[in-house]
Nucleic acid binder design. Structure first.
Lengths: 259, 259
DNA sequence: GACCAATTACTGGTCAGACCATTGCACCAC
DNA sequence: GTGGTGCAATGGTCTGACCAGTAATTGGTC
């Protein structure tokens, strides 16, 4: 795109416009992560703003951790791009598939605490909502045929979410939410397989029922214990699944090598 | 500390120092929420910096939503103090100042598990590193005078980080890291005050020592327990500090200088 | 030729003073 | 009282200068 032709609207909020413009250029790939962007004086010329306004604009980007500035050197585009969604975790995942189990370990901890707090702090309205979510899920899971796995996963998630919300700790809710999203986005296929098999499904259903009962009845310690057990068994099931998958993959790789 | 005698260290990072100074004054109640603070030109005189640097400092505070600026009017202290702006968790914090303690609650849980796993899984090299970090921090904390709080906070963080890394769970490390960053970015000034007082500092130092011993000796349950205790007492100290701050807010001792 | 020190041409960081645009209030005519 | 009007104060922007680091170039030495 032509960089020289974009000028900044003059008058008010010039630094904001500067920041927005540079952010746009970065997102469009004109300036790439790790790259050194033009000097302040050069940017002033291009954007037709004073250096003071330009610097305030850069200050905005710096406070958003989008650029990194060193005196005598220049400003570089930060390697991990803007905010939102735990991008760093994604990278972790790509490099080490083992982190799946690390993730489940942390999630178990948070789910356990979540269930514990829900049992202790949950209001009557929380309990009603938890029960409703549980019944929706149980009713859907009851029909053996014509079962959409994605829909079941959604109901499952809604049930766990209702419990975490009853903990009345927004930080806990959010952290748990991020981890769950990450888990589902990366290994949804595996979870799918889990639901498809009758053995695991029956075990999960039973654990859900016990979890529901413990939380609603206010038995905090028991709720934590069941939640931990639940996540632990899911982890074990996935581990078995992975082992199975590995065997298949290895035989496939051997084939590839020779063909 | 009389404000007229605090000048901003010249040379490097002037805007950061300006922002830190104003943040401190706000936290001490010299400038109260909703209040209009002095004009930019007057602040320049008092802080002995140029208007450009002062404006960049104000820009920092504005991007943290600590102040609100209107042309022709002035800058007012935002009604809700820090705690916004940073990562994904932000949206939650707007309406709930209480989330600070929610955050500490979650962090305690993760720190506890982290210490537990570190004691169980930590290799001999992990233990060496943890001990080194602990000694660095303890040595620095030992000198009563000439103590940079920021440096101490860094060493403190390095110690806890070493422990979490010994858990060999990257997801746990990352989640903990995010929460800690968030905590420090929002209430660093408060944490600063914590370090400045001899009572809390002594307690924190002792807890660090016990935590170190438990982790290095491999006593997992004990490590978890001490970590939980540690975070709980920090939470309580911050709660007291908050109450005290409320009281300070009512005193207008050094107000005349500013109006 | 290989290596090291000094030079130099950049970079961001800060400052000073000027002018513009908006706001709010005191003042004044009605 | 009410409603304009002008003025003073505010933040917003610009210009041009100088300071302070950085890194590549240069030039000398071995």
């Amino acid at each position: 795109m032509a960089f020289t032709s974009d000028d900044i609207p003059m008058g008010r909020r010039t630094p904001e416009h500067v920041a927005a413009k540079l952010e746009e250029l970065i997102l469009e790939g004109v300036f790439r992560p790790g790259q050194l962007l033009p000097s302040e004086r050069r940017l002033c010329e291009r954007l037709k703003v004073s250096r003071a306004s330009l610097r305030e604009g850069l200050r905005i980007l710096r406070s958003k951790a989008i650029i990194d500035t060193r005196q005598g050197h220049g400003s570089t585009v930060a390697s991990l791009l803007p905010m939102h969604q735990q991008a760093p975790l994604m990278h972790l995942f790509r490099d080490h598939p083992r982190t799946l189990f690390d993730l489940l370990e942390v999630r178990a901890l948070l789910e356990g605490e979540s269930a514990y707090l829900a049992a202790r702090r949950g209001t009557s309205m929380d309990r009603v909502l938890i029960t409703r979510r549980y019944r929706e899920m149980a009713a859907y899971a009851a029909q053996p045929e014509s079962l959409e796995v994605e829909q079941l996963a959604r109901l499952d998630h809604a049930f766990h979410l209702a419990i975490s919300q009853a903990s009345h700790n927004p930080v806990l809710v959010h952290t748990l939410q991020s981890l769950t999203d990450l888990l589902l986005s990366s290994v949804f296929a595996s979870v799918k397989h889990l639901y498809h098999r009758p053995g695991p499904r029956a075990m999960i259903n039973q654990q859900h029922e016990r979890l529901h009962d413990a939380v609603v009845s206010g038995d905090a310690e028991q709720a934590r214990h069941i939640a931990l057990e639940h996540l632990t068994s899911i982890s074990e099931l996935l581990r078995e699944l992975e082992a199975e998958h590995d065997r298949l993959e290895r035989s496939a790789m051997r084939l590839e090598q020779w063909q």
